[in-house]
Each structure stands twice: as structure tokens, then as C-alpha cells.
């Protein structure tokens, strides 16, 4: 049995609802969830939201169904870009997030996101008809760089028109990326909008994924996203610097000994 992950669960002010969401995900058998903070630079000129550390949010993480380990909770930032200036590479605000995603709204930005932006996930909008086509060149470029495309299914559960948009956008994406480097996530706001991992994998069939690809979309592709996120933080996954926690007191002690 593979490990299942849901890399998009909406956060809100209400902490008890977030807790409910996390415990439902654990009950369903997801071993990793990512809490999504959405940031739209064009709509309101507020700063990038800062994530709540997970150990502050939940004192004790619930155990995953069928495993003896507690669920892993990550933080993720989604930037909705409509202007090239919205995504600032190497901004210090992005550093405190485990995962970084963009949702481009124009073709130019989609091209830039695929070829240049230092992100892990390109989120495909599912609430409107896409204003552009997915061209082969940028999609292949993203595949080569290890960036994945994300489809979320909660909007499809909510109403019929969005279900049509979700399926049509999904199928047009699958035509150009042939089912590889795609992840399926929930974007759920309520616990009742989450679905079990096997159901999600089967839902992939509606989106034009084959059996194997659909299963990969909830398990191994998500794992490669996490690994890609780690290489983004470190120098291409080889060198990693950490601030030593006890430099202050240790230095003092040495000073005293002398």
C-alpha cells in the first residue's frame, strides 16, 4: 500500500474546523496533508500571510488509518498571479512555507511558471473556463524541471457548472501532458468535502487519467513534489545549511572556560 497524500487543504481562521479537516484526512488514510494559504496580490494589497506552525495548531496529531504513525502536516502557499510582478523569486516570505504553488491566469504567466519560476506546483484553475490552451512546449519544460500540475476536485463536488469546467480543463491538460506529473488534491474547506484516496484515484478516470497514472497522482507524484520542495530549499539537494541552535550559549560557555 502506497502512502497517500492530499497536498491542498484550505485553512481558515476557525482552528477547530482545520483540526476537523486534519483528523478526517487521517481517518481516511492520508499520511500527509498540506494546509493551503492562498495569496492574491492583485485583489488586496496585504502582505503574504504567515503560516501557523503546525505544533502550535495541533498539540497531538491524529494517527493515520492503517498505520501507527501520526499524520504529517505541511504548510503551502498558493500565489494567484495575473501580472509578472506578482511572483518575486527568492522572497524571504516564501521561505517559511514547505510547498510553493502558483496559479497563473494568463498564457504568458503560464509559460513563465513552467519554464522559469522556482515553484513546486502549478495549480490549474477549476472554477472558470481557461482563457488559454496548454501548449506542449511549456508543459514539457515543466515536466523536465520536475514541476507538477495540480487539479482539485472539491469545486466539482460543490456544483454542476464547476464540475464541467473541472472536467474540461482536466481533459485539456491531460492531452498535453499525457497523464504524467499530475497530482489530484481536494482543496476542501469542510470535512465533508474530502474523499477517500481510492475514490480520488478512481475520479482520475473522469479527468482522463489512466489507472496507473491516477494512482500515481495521489501517491508517488505527491512524494516527488515533497522531494522537489526539499531541493528548492537546499542547494540542489546536496548542501543544506542549518542554524545551529546552541551557538549562543555554547560560545558563552567556551568563553567562560577560557
Amino acid at each position: 500500500m502506497a502512502e497517500f497524500m492530499d497536498l491542498n487543504v484550505s485553512t481558515c481562521e476557525d482552528q477547530s474546523r482545520v483540526l476537523d479537516l486534519i483528523s478526517t484526512a487521517a481517518q481516511l488514510g492520508f499520511s500527509t496533508v498540506a494546509l493551503n494559504y492562498e495569496f492574491e496580490p492583485s485583489a488586496n494589497h496585504r502582505a503574504v500571510p504567515s503560516p501557523t506552525p503546525t505544533n502550535q495548531l495541533i498539540p497531538q496529531l491524529p494517527l493515520v488509518q492503517g498505520r501507527s504513525r501520526p499524520i504529517r502536516v505541511l504548510n503551502r502557499l498558493t500565489i494567484v498571479t495575473s501580472d509578472p510582478g506578482h511572483f518575486r523569486p527568492n522572497a524571504p516570505e516564501y521561505r517559511c512555507y514547505d510547498l510553493l504553488a502558483v496559479r497563473p491566469t494568463t498564457e504568458k504567466l503560464f509559460h513563465a511558471a513552467c519554464m522559469m519560476y522556482d515553484v513546486d506546483i502549478i495549480s490549474v484553475s477549476v472554477t472558470e473556463k481557461l482563457p488559454f490552451f496548454f501548449k506542449r512546449a511549456p508543459v514539457n519544460g515543466a515536466t523536465d524541471r520536475g514541476v507538477v500540475f495540480e487539479l482539485s476536485y472539491a469545486a466539482a463536488i460543490r456544483d454542476a457548472t464547476r464540475r464541467r469546467y473541472t472536467i474540461s480543463n482536466a481533459v485539456s491538460l491531460m492531452e498535453s501532458c499525457r497523464g504524467r506529473n499530475v497530482i489530484l488534491s481536494s482543496a476542501a474547506e469542510k470535512p465533508l468535502e474530502l474523499r477517500g484516496p481510492y475514490d480520488v484515484a478512481n475520479l482520475g478516470l473522469l479527468f482522463g487519467l489512466s489507472d496507473g497514472d491516477a494512482k500515481e497522482a495521489v501517491s508517488s507524484s505527491c512524494r516527488s513534489v515533497l522531494l522537489h520542495a526539499e531541493t528548492r530549499k537546499t542547494a540542489s539537494g546536496v548542501v543544506h545549511t542549518v542554524k545551529s541552535p546552541d551557538t549562543g550559549p555554547a560560545a558563552k560557555r567556551r568563553h567562560l572556560m577560557e
Partner: peptide, 24 residues
């Protein structure tokens, strides 16, 4: 099976029970 995730509530005895089916 691909239709089952779209179940959001079950109507019984005049009441709507919000729920979802999880295939095990």
C-alpha cells in the same frame, strides 16, 4: 464508482443527512 464521490447527502424519511461515501 466514479459517480460515488459526488454524493453529498442521503435523503431518508424526509431528512437530508449530509455525508460522503468512502470506498474501503
Amino acid at each position: 464508482w466514479s459517480a460515488l464521490p459526488f454524493i453529498t447527502c442521503i435523503e431518508t424519511r424526509g431528512q437530508k443527512i449530509p455525508c460522503f461515501l468512502n470506498c474501503l
